[in-house]
C-alpha cells in the first residue's frame, strides 16, 4: 500500500503506523466514565470508507487522518491532524 503524505509525497506503507478509527473524539476534561468508555472502546466495524489515524513515524512524524476503503484499500483522502502546521495558525 502507498500513502500520499501531504508533506512528503507518496510513500510506502512501511513508513506509516496505523492507529485506528479517527471518528471518536476524546471527551473534554469533564467527560463522564460513560463518555470516555465510548471514546475508548466502542468502534464501528466499517466495510467501506473509514476515517483512520495513521502516523508517518518513518518520515515527517505527522499524524494523518486518512479515509481508506477497508474492502479495497483505496485511499480517497489524506489530511494532516489538527495540530500539524500550527505555525500558520492565525498567520
Amino acid at each position: 500500500m502507498r500513502i500520499v503524505c501531504p508533506f512528503c509525497g507518496e510513500r510506502e506503507l512501511g513508513e506509516f503506523t496505523y492507529l485506528g478509527d479517527a471518528k471518536p473524539v476524546r471527551p473534554s476534561a469533564g467527560g463522564s466514565e460513560h463518555d470516555v468508555f465510548d471514546y475508548l472502546y466502542l468502534r464501528d466495524n466499517v466495510a467501506g470508507a473509514m476515517s483512520e489515524h495513521w502516523y508517518h513515524g518513518g518520515g515527517c512524524r505527522a499524524w494523518l487522518k486518512i479515509t481508506r476503503n477497508t474492502l479495497t484499500h483505496e485511499i480517497s483522502s489524506v489530511e494532516p491532524a489538527a495540530g500539524v502546521g500550527a505555525a500558520k495558525v492565525g498567520g
Binding site: C8, R11, G14, E15, G57, G58, G59, C60, R61
Partner: peptide, 10 residues
C-alpha cells in the same frame, strides 16, 4: 530532500 527510513530507521 526527504525525511524517510532505511532499515526501519529514520
Amino acid at each position: 530532500a526527504a525525511a524517510t527510513s532505511i532499515d526501519h530507521t529514520s
